Structure formats: structure tokens, C-alpha cells
Amino acid sequence: MPEHSEVARIVHFIRKHLVGKTLSKVQAQHDDIVYGKVGTSAAEFQKAMQGKKVVGAGQQGKYFWITMSSPPHAVMHFGMAGWLKIKDADTYYYRTDKPADKEWPPKYWKFLLETSDEPKTEAAFVDPRRLSRIRLVDCPINEIREHTPLKENGPDPIADKDIVTESWLIEKLRSKRVPVKALLLDQANISGIGNWMGDEILYHAKIHPEQYSNTLSDDQIKELHTAMYYVFTTALDVLADSEKFPEHWLFKHRWGKGKKNQPSALPNGDKITFITVGGRTSAVVPAVQKKTGAVAKDIDQKENGASASKRKRAIKEESDSEAEPSQKAKGRAPKRKSAPAVKKEEPEDKKVDTTGIVRRRSTRSRN
């Protein structure tokens, strides 16, 4: 799933290739999930964008937007496997070879943009898994972040650096009792951190991902704050080009899981192990990331079932089909008691994908 730096990469390409140009042709294929789930239709999107000038682009965490010469504006996120392709431009990340975009329009497109200038620029939003979201927000440009879905998401460590301070982070972690990895992944707390960034941040902060957030010391949280900005800014400086990430980063050596004759280890020999935290596979370096406080498994042995159930509901799996933040806050009705019955199969459209992240990787081995 594209995380903060990958989304920043796309914002960079939008500014480079689309900003300042008029969209002479817009095509949108209706998708009752990608558009419909957030109350927009392909026809509405096409009408709102057609003939207008692109005046800007911005980002808050995993969300990004394209601002037009007049409202409404397009606000989007990529879900698990969405992306924005620009014809003849290498917008990809996690790879060094230029993508084969000879086929145009590309498969699984949701909208196509074409500019009026010569040579014209063509762009396509694609998503084979249909977990992305495309919506229109009708407001002045400078008020986009005051509307759903951005207003329900936490601050962006780069755009809101004055908010995400050490003292803010201390208060945030102390106010919750969840594994620190799960807290970092929850977009309602902090925008932009996904699975690999969360692991990278915790590795550099020397914090175990299972440890409860409210058991971390002030010094540990300060290290976490420092590591967060280090990972964010370093990845941003190279526009998420993983080939340019530092060689000692966990990211460069975590992909050997399950592969024969390719053990996961850092250049200094420290082994990388894999555990599940908050429903997500987490890469951990035991030699560095020590448990210094209570973790979920320790508490499970001491608490009764009711408390454990309440705690599990608090450990939210990050899913970038990403239910709207406003939905996350909804309570649950009490369960009704009934006689034992045969368990019914859950409808296919309500099942949650917990298999992990599908990401584009380099065709070369990351050794």
C-alpha cells in the first residue's frame, strides 16, 4: 500500500506534469465502490473536472488532492494497489526499470485525464483491487482539510510539524493502551504511516512493536519522535525511490521472509524476525528492539475475557480499503442472546482482507 512518501511522489508528478494545464478531455468509468462508497459518481467526477485548469495538488498522509480552478476538487487515496500513471513518465516506486506503459489506456483505469497543451499530457488513475477512493469536495481550496475525510484523520508529520511535537506524541501515546505499532498505523492518530514505515520507525527508535504505548518512557517517546522525522524526511527526500534508501535500513533487507536460501538479516548480521501486531505482519530486530514494558500477550494472561475483548477492539487493523474515520467511531449494539445455531457464512462483500499489503516491488532482489 502506498504510504506517505509514495503519495508524496505522486503529488510531485502531478505538480510537474498537470498543474497549470487545462483538462481538455476527462473520462471516468463508474465504479460503485471506488466512487460510490464515498458518495460520488463517475459522471459527477467527469463533469467537475472537464474543461477546468489544474491549479495545485496537496497531501495529508495517505490522502492527496488535485485542486481545480473552481470547486469541487478531487480528493483521493490509493487503497491497497491504486496508483496514478502518467504516460511516458516513470511515476512508479520500489523499482528502477521504467514501467511498460505501451498499452494506453492502462488496465483497471478509473479515470483518464488529457490536457489541452501540445505535447499533451495524459494521466490515468488505476486500481485492480478497487480499494481506492475518489471523491469530490465542494469547498474553497484552502478549506479542503476542514472537510471529510481529511478532518477525521490525524495530523501529517511533515505538513503539521508544528503539531506533531515531542510533547504532543507523549500525550498521544499515554492516552491510549494499545501496542505502539497499532497506534502508529491508526490514521486517526497520525496520518501517513503504513506497515513498512511503522516498522522502520520503531526499529530506529529501538522500540518493540508489541509494547503498550502507555508503558513507554519519556526518553523512548522522544527517540520515537526523532525516528519518525528521520524516516519521513529521508524517504521524502528521494521521493520513495527504495533503491536510494540507506543500506542499513530495515526496508532494504526485510523481503526474504519465506524465501529459501534468503534469510532476513541486516548487513551487521542482526536477524529480522516476523510477528503479527494489530493484525499486520511486523518486521522486528530482536537484538535492538527490546521489550521494556507490558505487551499484549503478557496482559492477556492476567485479565478476564471481557477486558481482553474490549482491548482487542481497540487494536485496529489498518486497512486501506480504509473505512471512513467517522465510521470507526461508531459504537456497537449489545449482543442478543440466542439458542445455539449453525453458523452462517459471512457475505463475501463484508469480509476483511487481512492477508497483508500488495506492493509493487523491484524486479531485482533487494540484497
Rank of each mutant, 00 (worst) to 15 (best):
K351E: 04
V288F: 01
K302F: 09
G39S: 10
K297L: 03
I14V: 13
A296M: 13
A124G: 06
G79T: 01
Q327W: 10
E3D: 13
K47F: 01
L266A: 06
P340I: 08
G279Y: 09
R359A: 14
V238H: 05
T233F: 05
Q301W: 00
S242I: 11
W249V: 03
I141K: 14
V180L: 07
Y92P: 01
N189Q: 12
T354G: 11
F111G: 07
H225Y: 08
T281M: 14
K351S: 01
T273K: 12
A159Y: 08
H77T: 03
D160C: 09
S70H: 02
I66R: 01
T292A: 14
E317D: 09
K172R: 15
E223D: 14
H253T: 09
R177Q: 14
R313Q: 13
I190A: 07
A159P: 04
F274Y: 15
Q220W: 03
I144C: 06
F232V: 04
K328E: 08
P71Q: 12
E143M: 05
A323N: 12
S365H: 08
N214G: 10
D353I: 06
R336A: 14
Q327L: 14
I207N: 04
P106E: 13
H12F: 06
I272F: 05
R311I: 02
S319K: 09
W83R: 11
G278K: 03
P155F: 09
E118M: 07
G269E: 06
P99K: 06
S213A: 15
E210P: 02
L236M: 10
P72L: 02
P263D: 05
T233E: 15
